[in-house]
């Protein structure tokens, strides 16, 4: 399936960065909606002594090749899962530990279900297979909340083009270069951000959890309003034989708010 793209194309497309011990077990870190591989910058360095650490940006995020953003392909998590498999295949990784934050957790589930032979373990940090409440299922949100999120995205991107244009076009009179550069943290093209928000928050991958066959750890932070405890528990119940840990970190981005705790939990799971 993936033979069409050269390794260098895949690695450039997803801005793949390799760190750590080349002979170590491969750890693939995947960022969630709203950020980029920077989200792991306090966690990933703690693994470089023993592990081969692979970081990447999803197409449309961070330093990925925006031109590769095909709306049809990335209209579902399957498109992203396909990219993860291509990265793993092109680096010829085996016994991969896939560590996915937020929506990337489900991408990892889809990738591992498609080709379990490549994966040795899954670590899902704040996963949710479905954000919208449906029947007895509690996801935490209603459809109207998603519209509110899109409104908030638009309201905060109103000045995006104006702010980013001088930077992109290399106009010299940028008033405060430091500020402008930091503005690139987690920056995304607004139309891609909107689409990614749709795909993230309107997907339903509950049925895929039962098919997971690799050892899985679910890391659930306290007071995660995006993926609340009840959802983390649901994922734990649906993935047979999975481990579950309620960790001492606050909010949805525990990889930034509690990087040491996240690291400790992953290391404990892998040894």
């Amino acid at each position: 399936m993936s033979g069409a793209l050269e390794a260098t194309d895949v690695l450039r497309r997803n801005n793949v960065v390799e760190l750590g011990n080349p002979a170590g077990r491969p750890l693939v870190f995947a960022h969630g909606f709203g950020c980029s591989q920077e989200a792991w910058h306090r966690v990933a360095p703690q693994f470089t002594d023993d592990y081969r650490v692979i970081l990447f940006d999803h197409v449309g995020s961070g330093g990925s090749d925006i031109a590769a953003y095909d709306r049809g392909k990335y209209d579902s998590l399957h498109g992203y899962a396909g990219d993860i498999l291509e990265i793993v295949e092109n680096l010829d990784l085996h016994d991969v530990v896939f560590i996915g934050h937020s929506v990337s957790g489900m991408m990892g589930v889809l990738a591992a279900n498609r080709d379990p032979s490549r994966f040795g373990a899954l670590v899902l940090l704040g996963p949710s297979p479905r954000y919208i409440n449906t029947g007895d299922y509690i996801g935490g949100f209603e459809q109207a909340d998603i519209d509110g999120l899109l409104d908030a995205l638009d309201a905060n991107y109103l000045g995006w083009s104006a702010a980013m244009a001088p930077l992109i076009m290399g106009v010299p009179e940028v008033p405060d270069l430091g500020d402008e550069l930091t503005a690139s943290f987690c920056s995304t093209d607004p139309s891609i951000a909107r689409h990614f928000a749709h795909v993230t928050f309107l997907s339903d991958n509950r049925a895929d959890l039962a098919e997971v066959s690799v050892p899985t750890l679910i890391l659930q932070a306290k007071d995660d309003i995006i993926a609340p405890e009840v959802v983390g528990q649901y994922v734990h119940d649906q993935v047979a034989g999975s481990s579950y840990a309620l960790i001492d970190a606050y909010g949805h981005c525990a990889n930034l708010s509690g990087p040491d705790e996240v690291t400790r939990q992953i290391k404990a799971f892998l040894t």
């Binding site: 709203g34 920077e38 109207a144 949805h252």
Partner: peptide
């Protein structure tokens, strides 16, 4: 509000923690 909460938690808080502002 719920939608804004999602936006803040997924986009603004990571940036705040990353760049301090």
């Amino acid at each position: 509000e719920a939608g804004g909460r999602m936006f803040y938690e997924t986009r603004q808080r990571p940036v705040l923690l990353l760049q301090g502002e």
